Computed example of a mutant assay.
Amino acid sequence: MVVNRRIVFNQVKATGLPEPGVTTRPEQTEIDLDNVALNGGVLVRNVAASLDPTMRNRMKGGVYFTPNYVKDEPILCIGISEVLRSELDAYKPGDLIFIWSQPLEEYSVLPRQLVEQAGRKMDVPTNGLSITTYLGAAGMAGMTAYMSIKEIIGDRLQPGTTMFVTGAAGAVGQLVVQIARQAGVKVIASAGSDDKCRFLREELGCEAVFNYKTADPFEELKKFGGERGIDFYFDNVGGTQLEAYIEHSAKYGIIVACGYISGYNADKPEDIVYPKNLFKVVTRELTYRGFIVSSFIQKHLASFLAEIPQMIADGKIKVKEDVTFGVLGAEDAFLRLFTGDNEGKVAVLIDVDHADKWNLGERKKTAKVWQ
């Protein structure tokens, strides 16, 4: 028997920030790795987990496009797992599975149907990238940026056009900025701290940046867009910044609606800020399109995997990651997504004992390990 540490859902919290120990709680069980029944599935050691803002919506008890979390059951997230035992012909011990619904725990038995429908085999990284990069820039976050731009903006992403990006120092925003800049697009970006703004300006090359906590987005976008306005808006935030873009959008502008994090933790529904100028979507003939990245996977996955991981390995795309070592640190890491204290993609290395194998050994030496 071995210890199996995990984070389980504890109680619905419809408003406000998630609370470690209240919304979720740590738990410790035991599992017999040699004899636990697989029932046609696979036994895995969970290697790493992605923590994403949309997970908050599954804690509210309302209706969402994915099922709510179940009390006393592990939180589910996107992750990477290593097969220890298998009753599936397609998987053998040592194989890695990228899975869209991984329990946030150290070991899991994954049912056959889940693996076949929500998993795909992936190679052990040999290009020097960390395993957590395959959950961020080379994984879900990168797919979100790359695929939505290809699908929604497409050939209109041309040199000399302009784009506004919110949440620009976050996991998705970093990639959006760099994809746009490499296409010759002029970018104005916002973030929640001066350090993040400095990163966007000095390292990612944004033409203009502002701290949304201290600057007026209406004034910043007016100054950047001028009389013509701004062509594209990649929206991770919603709220006042969405309203500001609509006000200073170019004719036939495109809004890529990726998230609405400004409203995820509102104390009351009426506290969520919605644009008061939506009629300008009509008068300026804007395209305002939401998306779920899984809808684009089949069409764009092959080109994404062929391009983006190698560009990261070659240094053509820069990546900032916020990696927590140990599953018990996941609650604090998740909270950082909403307080703005994260530095880039938030991920958890669960398999801390093999950090070197996952190209995170050096970072582990100076990090807190939650065990």
Rank of each mutant, 00 (worst) to 15 (best):
Glu202Ala: 10
Glu202Met: 09
Glu202His: 10
Glu202Lys: 12
Glu202Tyr: 07
Glu202Ile: 09
Glu202Val: 10
Glu203Ile: 13
Glu203Met: 14
Glu203Leu: 14
Glu203Cys: 14
Glu203Gln: 15
Glu203Ser: 15
Glu203Ala: 13
Leu204Ile: 08
Leu204Asp: 06
Leu204Pro: 06
Gly205Ser: 10
Gly205Lys: 11
Gly205Phe: 09
Gly205Glu: 11
Gly205Asn: 10
Gly205Cys: 09
Cys206Leu: 07
Cys206Ala: 09
Cys206Ile: 05
Cys206Asn: 06
Glu207Phe: 02
Glu207Ala: 08
Glu207Val: 04
Glu207Met: 00
Ala208His: 14
Ala208Lys: 15
Ala208Asn: 12
Val209Gly: 02
Val209Cys: 05
Val209Gln: 04
Val209Glu: 04
Phe210Ile: 06
Phe210Leu: 07
Asn211Ala: 02
Asn211Lys: 02
Asn211His: 04
Asn211Gln: 01
Asn211Phe: 02
Tyr212Arg: 04
Tyr212Thr: 04
Tyr212Glu: 04
Tyr212Cys: 04
Lys213Asn: 14
Thr214Pro: 01
Thr214Tyr: 05
Thr214Leu: 02
Thr214Ile: 00
Ala215Val: 01
Ala215Cys: 05
Ala215Leu: 04
Ala215Asp: 09
Ala215Glu: 06
Asp216Trp: 06
Asp216His: 05
Asp216Leu: 07
Asp216Asn: 13
Asp216Ala: 06
Asp216Gln: 06
Asp216Lys: 06
Asp216Thr: 05
Pro217Phe: 12
Pro217Arg: 11
Pro217Cys: 11
Pro217Ile: 13
Phe218Gly: 08
Phe218Cys: 08
Phe218Val: 09
Phe218Asn: 12
Phe218Ala: 11
Phe218Leu: 08
Phe218Gln: 10
Glu219Trp: 01
Glu219Val: 05
Glu220Phe: 10
Glu220Cys: 12
Leu221Asp: 13
Leu221Trp: 12
Lys222Ala: 11
Lys222Asp: 07
Lys222Cys: 05
Lys222Val: 02
Lys222Ile: 05
Lys223His: 04
Lys223Thr: 07
Phe224Val: 10
Phe224Gly: 07
Phe224Ser: 08
Phe224Ile: 08
Phe224Asn: 07
Phe224Thr: 06
Gly225Val: 05
Gly226Ser: 13
Gly226Met: 10
Gly226Tyr: 09
Glu227Val: 15
Glu227Thr: 15
Glu227His: 15
Glu227Arg: 15
Glu227Ser: 15
Arg228Ile: 12
Arg228Cys: 10
Arg228Glu: 15
Arg228Pro: 07
Arg228Thr: 14
Gly229Pro: 15
Gly229His: 14
Gly229Lys: 14
Ile230Arg: 13
Ile230Thr: 14
Ile230Trp: 13
Ile230Met: 13
Ile230Val: 15
Ile230Cys: 12
Asp231Gly: 03
Asp231Leu: 02
Asp231Pro: 02
Asp231Val: 03
Asp231Gln: 02
Phe232Lys: 03
Phe232Val: 01
Phe232Thr: 02
Phe232Arg: 03
Tyr233Asp: 00
Tyr233Cys: 01
Tyr233Ile: 01
Tyr233Lys: 01
Tyr233Arg: 01
Tyr233Gln: 00
Tyr233Ser: 01
Tyr233Val: 00
Tyr233Phe: 05
Phe234Val: 00
Phe234Thr: 00
Phe234Arg: 00
Phe234Lys: 01
Phe234Glu: 00
Phe234Gln: 01
Asp235Cys: 11
Asp235Met: 07
Asp235Phe: 08
Asp235Ala: 08
Asp235Asn: 14
Asn236Thr: 10
Asn236Val: 09
Asn236Ala: 11
Asn236Glu: 10
